[in-house]
Every structure is written in structure tokens, then in C-alpha cells.
Design a protein around this nucleic acid. Structure first.
Length: 716
DNA sequence: GCGTGACATTTTTTT
DNA sequence: AATGTCACGC
């Protein structure tokens, strides 16, 4: 303690020994294994403040990297609250945000036009489709989505088209498309998300003086959510870290839930070997959840084989048991949740302190319906983001065209929207002309005649009229001059879209005020990189609905995890993926550890999926929890559902029709046990009497048809 | 050129 | 169920 000047003790006062050790580590690389709720963000921000306050580094020498804009903002807010001095010069942001910053500064060295534009995933996909059409690629055989996946996967692993392993006809063609796609992007002056990272990486890799400059500058690099880094991001960090840089990586391998998009869990072990050299601190004290909840989480995650190893504990009491509810149907499940939420709300738990979690977005519909009917205020996270709405994308495309006319994607998006009589045939002609002279569509349009030339004049006119206007007024002018405003005013369903366009003008005004750079290019980059968090309805007390993925990093008094059925959670897709089940289990671990005080787990026997009733078995994750912390709210007797009870629990519609074979004592939807195949659920029925056969979906043994007369089935 | 209906297609999500 | 994509006819 005495090693550091007085006055900093208050900074370290409320930290536990491990947290303090992490915050005050000497100038060395280290790995901080921080469990859920262990004060990870606090350690990260406190370390930055401590480093600066003790004079070990100036804000200028710090680089802090996060994954989401939300996390970056949160970090900045906390730092400013602790540090009265200005924090400018400190680089805090997302990987992509920082890469963008680098490329904007060194655009020439990176081989990009000064006004290069960023393609979001949507833009990228349409660029790929456009290219494949021009190349005459069969989109049945080569699905554009797969191509996008292929390209991004390679880029995220740090590979260009020439490095892509191509051994058969299929992958060779894919690599060809990849190469042509990158050429198209280069021609048009656009970069997709992974391209930002790869370009920035290559820039520093090839440019020795520049690399040296940044290596000398950043004395401390701190990384949040390190378990989510992909191969390229890790190499990126290694490039930035010179011999005198301390890399401080904070992460939790148990919360790695983004392997499906390239996150490489092995990075943590690798980092430990390459940088930390055993300099590892584990934060295992959890300040969030009560004991039973942690016990459940620990027991569950212990089943995963590939772990660095960590066990959370709490100084709090055991708390309440975990409540399990078995519903007949998804609607039954929803009405159960509504009842419990209302009761808790009456008891004083704020709605905003309760979360309703599900594995996939499609599950929210039924829940929303029930909440809406019961007049329970709720807010759904996720879904369409502000800058991804079509009217916003249209306006942005006009803006992109103003600053970067080579952008064919933007050109095509708005050349005939609002419609101005420029159809597919004229565009084909235009594209031919452009291809022949090797120029962009825009250039070809400028030298053409008729309606296409009219469009070029329109854009040229807008460009001149807005040359000296402030950002917000530029956008306002574009909306009107382009005809977007008139178009949506005439559309009877256009009111919302008009309002969003208005909101875009406001967002631009706000952006000019808040950021140092208020150029159009900066705003367009901002729009691409921070598409979300522009959502209405914040601030009201409302029940929080979201996918488990979206819940990471958040915490609530009460958490409901719904749809705990086999093939839904764990998702059936995960069975086909390598280590897919382990990732699903980590997802469940994340879900459980969101709860502070009360946790509900529910599953339904039947559920509407893709317009069909499906029957699901309870999730294996329920069996993986220790029985002594569970409370079964309605563990049912052996028998099937008495028909009257379905209505009593809110099952809509007419009672189930008498199914064939209801005389045999078995019916569709019922759980059964088989001596050899284990437990399963009846999903279909065929025949009567001695010929009766049932189709049973077994949890572990797949789906089978069994003759009732021979198979030794028993109700389970 | 544009609107309409048949058709398939359904994880998770940030940047 | 709901949504997007695509071919077809006006």
C-alpha cells in the first residue's frame, strides 16, 4: 500500500485483494480471468485511472479495446467520473472503431480513397449478389450468404483470397469470387467490417515506421471481453504491442458465446503462453448473485471439458431456490410468466429489473402477445436498428454518393428510389457502358442522356447546393431534394418513416455537437459502426425481453429463462457443429448468471414453430443442475394432461381432438420411456388396436417409429 | 417499369 | 406465422 502515493488508497479501498492485485500490476502483460459479476469492468477502468494517477503513463499512452460501442461508452463514462482531467488523447473504442480511426488518418498509406465508405452486413451481401450476377455465378450452387460467410471467415482469420485454401472446384470458385469481390470494393472505395480490421492490420504490418510509431506510443493496451477476440483481432493486438507494451487482457472463457462468428477461445490459452507467462489473476468472488444461483451455474459449466478453470463464490447467503415450471404449451408458459411478473411487480420489484430471456428471437412473439393482452409494459431488445431501416439506408445512400461517387452500391440503391422511371433495362445498359470504359456507374451516368442523366444532374445539383451547409442541413436538403420526403408523405404508411428521417437530421445535429470531427464522412462512418442504440422507449419502467446473447453483460433482480427444450436450447443446429453443445452450455451459463435474486426456468411440452405444433423434451441442461437448489413448481404426476386443465392454465383453442389410439393410453405430446432408447416424446400416431404405432422423438436416440404392441413403453 | 402472387426459408449478433 | 425473393403479367 505504502508503495503508492497517498490519495490513491481511496481508489483501491473497496477492492478485494485479487481485484487490487490486478489493478496495481506492474508494467507487465497479464491475463485476468474474470468470472460473471466479479467486477470486471470496474477492474479495467480502475486500472486505467490508477496508471494515470500514479504518473506511470499519460492518457496518450493508453489503448483500451472493447467489442461493443456500449461497453466503450460505459468505460469512458466511468473513467471520466474518476479522473477529473481530460481524457482526450486516450484511445478507447471498439476494434472496428479504432481500425476506422487508423485508416482515416493513414488512408493514403492504406491504399484507400479519403472518403472510403463502410459497408454493413446488408450492404456487403447486396454487393456480393451484384457481383455474382455480373460474374454469372449460379446462386443456387453458390449461395450469396455462404459466399459472405466464406469471405468474412477468411478475413477474420487474416487471410486474403490468395491465401484461402482452395482444393476442390467449389472452394476454388469461392476463392475466385472472393478475389473479384475485393477488387470490386477497391474500385468502389468501400470496405466491409472485416476489411477494416484486415486493412489496418496490413497497414501496420507492412509499414515499419508507422508500426514503430504506434508501438512507442501505446505503453498499455487493455482488452475487454478477450474471450470474444477472433484470430485477426489477436494478431492485431500483437502487432500493436511492442517490446515495452503491457497487454492487459480481461476475459472469461466460460462466457465465450460468439464462436459461431469467428471468436477463437484458444486465444486465451495462447495469450497466457505468449504474453502473460503465468501472470494470471482469477477474479472468482461474485458480487451479483445469491448462492443457489451460483451453485447451479458452477455445476452446469463444470461439464464443459475445455476450460481454463474457475469457480465462482459469493459472500451472500444461499438465497431462494431456482424455480422450475413445466408448461403444457408455449402459451401456457407465457401466461405463467405474466402471472409471476405481476405478482413480483406488486411486491415491489421494478419491471425493468426483471428479464425475460429466450434462445431465439422467434420465441418472443407468444410472450409479447401475452404481455400485451395483460397490459404489462415491456421492451424488446434487438431487432431492427435505427441505421438499418430502409428509409435511413436510402438517405445514407444519397449522402454516400455525394462524398464518394464511385460507390456503385449506393448508386443502385437510390437511382430509382423514389421511382423516376429508370428500370432494369436502362441500368443494364448503363452497367455495360461502365464496364466497357472501366468506370463507375456514376461516371457512366454523367456521360449518358435521358432519365439517367437527369439523375446525375440531380445529385450534382444537391452537391452544389449543400457544399457549405452544416451537416444536419445537408441531410435535410437531401431528404427533400431527392424526393424521399414527398414519397413518404404520399405513402399512407409513411408517417413512421418520415419521423425516422427527421430523427436522422436530429442525430446528425447531435453528432456535430458531440464529436470533434463533424464531416459527412465521419457521420457516415458513425452510422455504419454504431447502427444500434438509437431506440425509443428507454427510461420507462418495463419488463426486459431479449435473447440470451443480448443479455450478456447485464444483470437483473429476476430472470426468466424460457423455452428450455431439447432442440431449442440447446439449439438443434448446435449438434452439427464442433463443440456446439459446449457453446450452448456456456450460453446457458451466461443466462443463469444474469440473475441476482430469483431465477425461473421453464419449458413447454408443445410449441408453435414455423406454423406447426412441435413437441419438445425438457432440455438436458435442466438435468445438469443440482437437484438440491431446484424447486419444481408443478412437477406433474405420471398421467397425461387432464383435458380440463389445459383451459385452466390458459391453453387457447378447442380441447385436443381425440387422437387415434387414445384408447391405448398414449397420445401425441406425451412423454414416454423406453428400456433401450431412454426418454422421449410421442410426436405422431398411426393405426389402432394391435397395429397402433407411435413415432417417438428420443432425447438421445433420435426419432423412431415403434409398434405399441411390441415396444416396451411406459409413461414418463 | 411496376405491382402482384407463388415460393421457399427460417440461430444466436457486433462491428 | 411471417418474411423475403423471384418470376410473371399488365
Amino acid at each position: 500500500m505504502s508503495a503508492y502515493p497517498e490519495g490513491h488508497s481511496s481508489l483501491l479501498e473497496n477492492l478485494n485483494p485479487e481485484q487490487r492485485a490486478a489493478v496495481t500490476l506492474p508494467h507487465e502483460s497479464a491475463l485476468i480471468l474474470a468470472g460473471a459479476g466479479s467486477g470486471k469492468t470496474r477492474v479495467l477502468t480502475t486500472r486505467i485511472v490508477w496508471l494515470i494517477q500514479t504518473g506511470q503513463v499519460s492518457p496518450h499512452g493508453i489503448l483500451a479495446v472493447t467489442f461493443t460501442n456500449k461497453a466503450a461508452k460505459e468505460m469512458m463514462t466511468r473513467i471520466s467520473a474518476m479522473l477529473p482531467i481530460n481524457t482526450r488523447g486516450m484511445w478507447v473504442g471498439t476494434f472496428h472503431g479504432l481500425a476506422n480511426r487508423l485508416l482515416r488518418t493513414h488512408w493514403r498509406e492504406a491504399g484507400l480513397p479519403q472518403s472510403f465508405q463502410i459497408l454493413d452486413s446488408q450492404d456487403q451481401l447486396s454487393a456480393i449478389k451484384r457481383l455474382m450476377k455480373a460474374m454469372n455465378v449460379d446462386t443456387e450452387k453458390y449461395e450469396p450468404k455462404k459466399v459472405q460467410w466464406f469471405i468474412n471467415g477468411h478475413k477474420e482469420a487474416g487471410r486474403r483470397a490468395r491465401d484461402a485454401e482452395a482444393f476442390d472446384e467449389y472452394s476454388m470458385r469461392m476463392a475466385e469470387i472472393f478475389e473479384a469481390y475485393d477488387a470490386q470494393c477497391q474500385r468502389e472505395g468501400v470496405a466491409d467490417f472485416p476489411e477494416l480490421l484486415l486493412r489496418a492490420y496490413e497497414l501496420l504490418y507492412r509499414n515499419e515506421p508507422l508500426r514503430q510509431h504506434y508501438r512507442d506510443r501505446f505503453k498499455h493496451i487493455l482488452v475487454d471481453e478477450f474471450q470474444d477476440t477472433n484470430t485477426l483481432q489477436y494478431r492485431w493486438l500483437k502487432l500493436f504491442a511492442g517490446p515495452h507494451t503491457a497487454l492487459f487482457a480481461v476475459g472469461d472463457d466460460d462466457q465465450s458465446i460468439y464462436a459461431f462468428r469467428g471468436a477463437n477461445t484458444a486465444n486465451m490459452a495462447e495469450f497466457e503462453r505468449e504474453f502473460a507467462h503465468g501472470n494470471v489473476i482469477k477474479l472468482e468472488q461474485n458480487y451479483r448473485s445469491h448462492g443457489h444461483i451460483l451453485t447451479a451455474a458452477n455445476t452446469l459449466i463444470a461439464r464443459n471439458a475445455h476450460r481454463l478453470g474457475k469457480n465462482l463464490w459469493t459472500a451472500e447467503g444461499e438465497g431462494e431456490p431456482i424455480r422450475i415450471f413445466e408448461a403444457w404449451s408455449d402459451q401456457d408458459e407465457a401466461s405463467f410468466v405474466v402471472d409471476e411478473v405481476r405478482t413480483l411487480s406488486r411486491e415491489g420489484v421494478a419491471l425493468s429489473d426483471m428479464a425475460l430471456l429466450y434462445r431465439s428471437n422467434a420465441q418472443s412473439r407468444v410472450l409479447e402477445h401475452a404481455l400485451f393482452s395483460a397490459h404489462v409494459p415491456y421492451r424488446v431488445y434487438g431487432g431492427l436498428r435505427f441505421f438499418e431501416r430502409q428509409e435511413i439506408k436510402h438517405a445514407l445512400a444519397y449522402l454516400r454518393l455525394l462524398t464518394n461517387p464511385e460507390d456503385d452500391g449506393a448508386f443502385l440503391r437510390v437511382v430509382n428510389f423514389p421511382t423516376r422511371g429508370i428500370g432494369a433495362r436502362s441500368l443494364e445498359q448503363l452497367a455495360d457502358n461502365a464496364a466497357r470504359s472501366g468506370s463507375s456507374l456514376w461516371q457512366a451516368a454523367c456521360t449518358s442522356s435521358g432519365k439517367v442523366a437527369g439523375f446525375a444532374k440531380l445529385i450534382e445539383g444537391i452537391k452544389q447546393a449543400t457544399a457549405d451547409l452544416p451537416l444536419a442541413e445537408v441531410i435535410d436538403h437531401v431528404i427533400e431534394a431527392s424526393g424521399l420526403g414527398d414519397y413518404y408523405r404520399a405513402d399512407k404508411d409513411g408517417a413512421d418513416r418520415l419521423e425516422n428521417l427527421n430523427e436522422l437530421v436530429n442525430a446528425a445535429a447531435l453528432f456535430s455537437e458531440e464529436s470533434e470531427e463533424n464531416t459527412l464522412d465521419a457521420f457516415l462512418a458513425h452510422a455504419a459502426l454504431e447502427a444500434g442504440e438509437h431506440q425509443a422507449g428507454a427510461g420507462h419502467d418495463a419488463l426486459q425481453l431479449m435473447t440470451v446473447h443480448a443479455a450478456k453483460g447485464l444483470e437483473f433482480h429476476t430472470v426468466f429463462i424460457t423455452g428450455l427444450e431439447e432442440s431449442l436450447f440447446p439449439h438443434e443446429q448446435s449438434a452439427h457443429e464442433e463443440n456446439g453443445l459446449e457453446e450452448e452450455r456456456r450460453l446457458m451459463y451466461v443466462a443463469i448468471t444474469r440473475a441476482r435474486r430469483r431465477l425461473y426456468l421453464s419449458h413447454a411440452q408443445s410449441r408453435m414453430l414455423h406454423g406447426q405444433v412441435r413437441y419438445g423434451l425438457p432440455s438436458r441442461f435442466l438435468d445438469e443442475l443440482p437437484a438440491q437448489v431446484l424447486l419444481h413448481l408443478n412437477r406433474r404426476a405420471e398421467s397425461a394432461c387432464p383435458s380440463g386443465m389445459q383451459q385452466a392454465t390458459g391453453h387457447y383453442g378447442s380441447p385436443a381432438p381425440r387422437s387415434p389410439g387414445s384408447d391405448t393410453g398414449y397420445k401425441v405430446g406425451q412423454s414416454v420411456a423406453h428400456a433401450k432408447f431412454g426418454t422421449g416424446i410421442i410426436i405422431d400416431f398411426e393405426g389402432r388396436g394391435p397395429d397402433a404405432r407411435v413415432q417417438v422423438k428420443f432425447r438421445d436416440a433420435g426419432t423412431k417409429w415403434l409398434a405399441l404392441a411390441y415396444a416396451k413403453l411406459s409413461p414418463a
